[in-house]
Simulated assay, not measured.
Amino acid sequence: MSVLSATDVRRNWSQFNDDIVREGPQFVKRNRDEWVAMSTEQLKAAFSNFTFHAHLVQEDDGTITATLDQFDLVENGSSEKEVLEALTYELIEYSQEYMENFKLYFHSPNRKAHFPYILNVVAQDHPENVRQLITCQAGVK
């Protein structure tokens, strides 16, 4: 694996960006820090298997409750479409919160495993694409 120096990257910034998009991810080392740069398309491909599974339950009052496996996200709505839309926006909001508080969330034992899922959400360019990451198991009659 080829690792570029940060000095070389800085010196050839435009070429570095072109190489990422056209050739693939690039690994960089600066002192003791190492990092990777990739395009959004590559990020989506790398994390495409990190999807979500929702359980739907019809409540006694006729509403539907959706819970997301491995996440503390629960939504309720009058229809499957409504509850999945609410769950999608809640997932987007949680992902934004995770990224805004990255140091805290990433280093929290109960939230660290969320990271690849969060990256898959933030890489999406439209809420409908996030909605497509959620599959359902209906307990709805």
Rank of each mutant, 00 (worst) to 15 (best):
S2I: 07
V3H: 07
T7K: 11
T7W: 03
T7V: 13
D8L: 13
V9C: 12
R10Y: 03
R11S: 12
R11A: 14
R11D: 13
N12S: 11
S14W: 02
F16E: 07
D18Y: 06
V21R: 11
P25S: 13
Q26H: 04
F27N: 13
R32Q: 11
W35Y: 05
V36F: 00
S39E: 01
S39Y: 01
T40E: 11
F47D: 09
N49V: 04
T51F: 01
T51R: 05
A54C: 12
Q58L: 12
D61V: 09
T63E: 13
T63Y: 03
A66Q: 07
A66T: 04
T67R: 07
L68A: 03
Q70V: 12
Q70M: 11
Q70Y: 07
L73Y: 01
L73E: 03
E75T: 10
N76I: 11
S78A: 08
S78D: 03
S78P: 05
E80L: 03
E80I: 05
K81M: 06
K81H: 04
K81N: 11
V83M: 02
T88G: 12
Y89W: 14
Y89F: 15
I92T: 09
E93H: 10
E93R: 13
S95D: 04
Q96G: 14
Y98F: 04
E100R: 08
N101A: 09
F102A: 11
K103W: 07
L104R: 12
Y105T: 06
S108G: 05
S108I: 01
P109W: 01
P109H: 05
P109G: 06
N110M: 12
R111D: 04
K112T: 10
H114E: 05
I118Q: 06
L119D: 08
V121T: 05
A123W: 00
A123C: 08
Q124R: 08
Q124M: 08
H126G: 14
P127M: 12
V130H: 06
L133R: 06
L133Q: 10
C136H: 01
Q137A: 11
